[in-house]
Design a protein around this nucleic acid. Structure first.
Lengths: 299, 299
DNA sequence: TAAGGTTACGGCGATCGTAACGATC
DNA sequence: GATCGTTACGATCGCCGTAACCTTA
């Protein structure tokens, strides 16, 4: 057994068990990969993969169990490399952030800018995705830190830090009936609604607010990002339910925002990262920066 | 980085950072070990060991952090081997049991015999040690399963299964004053006591029983095993406080045993093993056997 | 001077690359 | 016939062993 065999098993999973593609990823020829896999299976005494002819089509029971350990080894191995690199120079490196549109646009700009000033040597990569995808990004090592509101607190191997709490707001064009007067769930439900897609940015709290009222929401547009929602609100398609901080007093002067904190439960945006992953110092400082920015928002 | 370098780091810790001894353990010459360590440190970019001249005298900060990951990798590696071996033949292997004298003599014989009949292909090694040492045996991989009453439930990375509950008993020679009449803590404290060493077999519960009474115990002999205690009780040196199941109605006819469950809190014997270690099927069955034997005792 | 560690160098074996072949869609 | 995997064989590079050397108790 050696580390490149372990690495191979990981790469094989990332390539749908395709030996040729795995070879390419590992910068060696395909025959070498083929042999290494054979040697490893021979050493263990049983096949790790189900085969159809020569093709690998899945993991055996043994293979699945072994893969857990393989993942552990690979994690620990990259941890070693990261720890050492961090020890050499904790001001340099790469930070992969995965987040949703709302956070990327309305929350992250300030803390990221401050972070960049302190750590000019750290390259920041930002990926936008759905909460589900974010979690996957963490697990596959394509992201170091995820920032979002939904789902992450239901995953066991993540460390979660509460970031900030926010409320939904209603946005309507000026002179819209809902721009004045008391707002209730009943009144809201009388209009076509534009809000976030299922599984995004506090959507679950909108659901739960209406759950036991017997009212049916007429959601005519579900988008992953606030800007799309605003766009169609401006077109008069309906009323928008968006995250409070996504209303920009300056650029959204043509819209009226109204707080819904008394109607819809508050949402909590979290910071998440893998429990078994080593976070470089600068990543930890990035999180500090986020928490600082969060505090400022809350006041 | 490769697995033998990782292995080397482990072996170095086991040999007090002695390169020569590590080389011997790994069945290679010392110069090879020296070079591999240099290569690894060079790859990481910083030394892992503090040096005095050429001698290794300790771990650096980096080294200590890296060692945690090294341990993880080594665990996962042996897990892979064990899982595969178990998959090939789950009736063969080695079972390292670490336990205290009392368990070894009065509880384990029955379940071990039954286990041996079912798994003749499994070699059983039993180590006797103090509870503290047992935990160390688990951590260093010299034991797979530990069975004892004290301490194990205070260690984070152990899985604990409750085995059985038992009470202390008093043993005295026949015609001893304590062989008749009501027994109280006060009366007990009037005699010289012989019992288990500190940290052994429910000793902590004896302590806690007397803690708030203001009574001072006159422990004139503390032994790790019951037989020593009985021996000196027979010599008339004092009264013995032993585990109830350690009184053998047959061979201890010359002694009188009296239940102390109303005076001393009950003790609980546990089964412990490392959280991140793979236990072969037969080990799991051995635990089942223990739990079965425990149930029989309780009735 | 014995014990522990490093450096230099030659030899061997593990693993890679090339290439030809086999199977499956 | 294109894609994917295996087998055979020669070449290479990594790692070990020998041996001489350095350092400190």
């Amino acid at each position: 057994m050696n580390l490149s065999q372990i690495e191979l098993l990981r790469v094989l999973q990332e390539t749908n068990l395709n030996l040729s593609k795995a070879a390419e990823k590992m910068h060696i020829v395909q025959s070498a990969v083929s042999r290494q896999l054979q040697l490893f299976e021979a050493e263990l005494g049983s096949p790790l993969f189900e085969r159809q002819g020569k093709k690998l089509i899945g993991l055996t029971t043994l293979g699945m169990r072994i893969m857990e350990e393989v993942a552990t080894i690979n994690r620990a191995k990259t941890n070693i490399q990261n720890i050492a690199a961090d020890y050499l120079d904790s001001n340099q490196g790469i930070l992969h952030i995965a987040t949703t549109h709302t956070q990327a646009k309305y929350f992250l700009p300030a803390p990221i800018q401050r972070f960049r000033e302190k750590y000019p040597g750290v390259s920041i990569y930002m990926v936008q995705a759905s909460p589900e995808q974010l979690i996957d990004q963490l697990h596959t090592g394509r992201a170091d830190i995820a920032i979002c509101t939904e789902k992450v607190d239901q995953v066991a191997d993540l460390v979660i830090a509460n970031c900030y709490e926010w409320h939904h707001a209603l946005v309507v064009p000026q002179h819209h009936p809902l721009s004045t007067g008391e707002i209730s769930l009943e009144r809201l439900a009388g209009f076509p609604i534009l809000t976030y897609s299922f599984g995004y940015t506090g959507r679950s709290n909108i659901e739960s607010a209406f759950k036991n009222t017997g009212l049916e929401l007429d959601i005519i547009l579900a988008a992953a990002d606030t800007d799309v929602i605003k766009t169609y609100v401006r077109l008069g398609m309906g009323v928008g339910l968006i995250a409070g901080m996504a209303y920009d007093a300056l650029t959204d002067q043509d819209l009226v925002a109204r707080d819904l904190s008394h109607l819809i439960p508050s949402s909590r945006t979290k910071i998440a990262y893998l429990k078994h992953n080593y976070l470089p110092l600068y990543s930890q400082h990035f999180i500090d920066e986020l928490l600082l920015a969060a505090k400022e928002i809350q006041c």
